[in-house]
Design a protein around this nucleic acid. Structure first.
Lengths: 227, 227
DNA sequence: CACCTTCTCAAGCGGTTTCTTGAATATGAT
DNA sequence: ATCATATTCAAGAAACCGCTTGAGAAGGTG
C-alpha cells in the first residue's frame, strides 16, 4: 500500500466516524434522538413531538437510519422508529453533557427555553436512591403515557403532562409528610417543572429528579415496563 | 411565552447541541481530534499529522475552536491547539465506539487502512493490569516522542515509530521469558502493529494493548509525564 | 376492487461547507 | 528597521444539506 493509498484509506475511515457525528449535527435530528431515547415512535408521532412536517421528519428519520443511529419496525401501516442501540443514547448523552459543560451559550439557550428554574428544588439519581432505601416516597412520571409504558422508574405513578389534574386526587390521599419526587424526559424537559409548580399551587412541596429515564437506565438503574 | 416562541427557543437549544456534533461531523476534524487527544500540537504539526495543507488545517482548527472543542495557547510564533477538556475526548471515544459497534462498514474501512491484524495478539487494559500485578513486563510506547512526553503509561519505554531500530538494543538486553506489550495512539493506529511485526521478525513475540493513552487515562489509569 | 392511511421519494431552491489560492497579520531574530 | 516564520483571513468554485411541494408506494379496510 502506497503512502497515498494509506492516506485515502485513513481518510475514508475517519469520514466514516464523521458520518455518525453528521447524523447528530442537525438540531432537528438531535431533537428526534432525544425523543426516541424515551422509546419508539411512529413517524407521525415523532413529527408531532418535534413540531415538523411529516415529510421533513420522515426525511430526517431516513437520514438517521442511513447512518445507523435508528432502526425501524413495521406494524400495519405504521412504521416505528427507535434508537438502534443503547450506545446511541450513551453517545447522545455524552454530547449533550459536553455541550452543557462547555458552552455558557447553551446555558443561556436552555434558560430561554426552560425558564427560570431556580425556585425548583432538585434531587440527583444518587440522592434519590439513598432516600428510597430509607423510606417510601411518591414518584411521579410526568411524560406522555406511551413513554411511561415503554419504561419507567419502579413504582412511579404516571401523570401525563396534559392530565395534571390527576394530581388533585393523588395528593388528597397522601399524608402531609409524604415526600413527592417528579421526573420527566431529562434535564431539558419542562413537564416535571410544570407538575411541581402545579403542586406548589396546591401547597405541596415536590422535588425534581434531574435525570430522565434514559440517564437512569444507562446508569444501571432498574426500569419497569408496561401498565 | 407563546407556543411559537417556545418552539423557537427549543429549536435554538437543540441547534446548540447539534453545533457540537457538527464540529466532529467532518473526517478531517475527527482526525484532528484523534490527534489532539494524544496531546497538544501546533497548527503545522497538526497539518502534517493529518496530511492537509496548512491553511485548511488552520481553517478546521478554527472551526473546532469556535464550537468550543479545542483551546489554544501561544508560545512565540507557534500556536498550540489542545482538546478543550477531557470530556471532548470522552465524547469522541463514545462516538468512535458507537461507529465501530454499529457499522460493519467501519470494520471494512478500518481493515482497509490497518491491514489484516488477525495475526497480532492483543491484550486489554484490564488484562494488562492483572498481569502487571503478577510480574514485570516490558511496555513499549510506539508514538512520536512529543506524544510520549505529554503522557505515557508508567514505566513505558519510548520507541518512536520512525526509530524501530531502537528495539534491537532493547531486546538484546531482555531475557527470553520477558513479555513485551506495545501500544500506540489507540485501536485505529498502526504504529504498535509495525513494532510488533518488527519484533516478530527478530523472533520475539509481543502483545498489542488495544487501548491507547486517552482511553487508559479516561478509565482512570495512571499516566506519567515528561522525560 | 376502490379507497384510506401512513410513509417515502424526487425535484428544486436557497443556503452552507470544504478546499484552494493568495494576501495579510503577528511574533521573534538579526 | 528588516526579514523570516507561523498562522489567519478573504474570496471563490464545487459539492452538499435542509426544507418544501407534490407525487408515489405499501399496507389495511369496507
Amino acid at each position: 500500500m502506497t503512502t497515498r493509498e494509506k492516506r485515502a484509506a485513513k481518510d475514508a475511515l475517519f469520514e466514516g466516524f464523521a458520518t455518525i457525528a453528521a447524523g447528530l449535527a442537525s438540531g432537528r435530528r438531535a431533537e428526534i434522538v432525544e425523543v426516541l431515547a424515551q422509546g419508539e415512535r411512529t413517524v407521525e408521532e415523532t413529527a408531532e413531538a418535534i413540531g415538523q412536517t411529516l415529510a421533513n421528519t420522515s426525511h430526517h428519520l431516513r437520514t438517521l437510519a442511513r447512518v445507523g443511529l435508528v432502526a425501524t419496525r413495521r406494524d400495519g401501516t405504521h412504521i416505528y422508529y427507535r434508537v438502534a442501540s443503547e450506545q446511541v443514547v450513551e453517545t447522545w448523552l455524552a454530547l449533550r453533557r459536553l455541550a452543557a459543560d462547555q458552552l455558557d451559550h447553551i446555558e443561556d439557550l436552555a434558560r430561554a427555553y426552560l425558564g427560570d428554574r431556580d425556585d425548583l428544588e432538585v434531587i440527583s439519581r444518587h440522592e434519590l436512591e439513598t432516600k428510597l432505601r430509607e423510606r417510601d416516597l411518591v414518584l411521579i412520571d410526568v411524560r406522555p403515557a406511551a413513554e411511561y409504558v415503554s419504561g419507567h422508574l419502579p413504582g412511579a405513578i404516571s401523570v401525563p403532562p396534559d392530565r395534571l389534574e390527576l394530581l388533585d386526587d393523588l395528593v388528597s390521599n397522601l399524608l402531609p409528610e409524604d415526600e413527592i419526587v417528579a421526573y420527566c424526559r431529562g434535564p431539558y424537559c419542562v413537564y416535571a417543572d410544570d407538575a411541581i409548580r402545579y403542586l406548589a399551587g396546591m401547597g405541596r412541596r415536590a422535588l425534581r429528579l434531574v435525570e430522565g429515564v434514559p440517564e437512569w437506565r444507562l446508569d444501571g438503574g432498574p426500569v419497569e415496563k408496561g401498565r
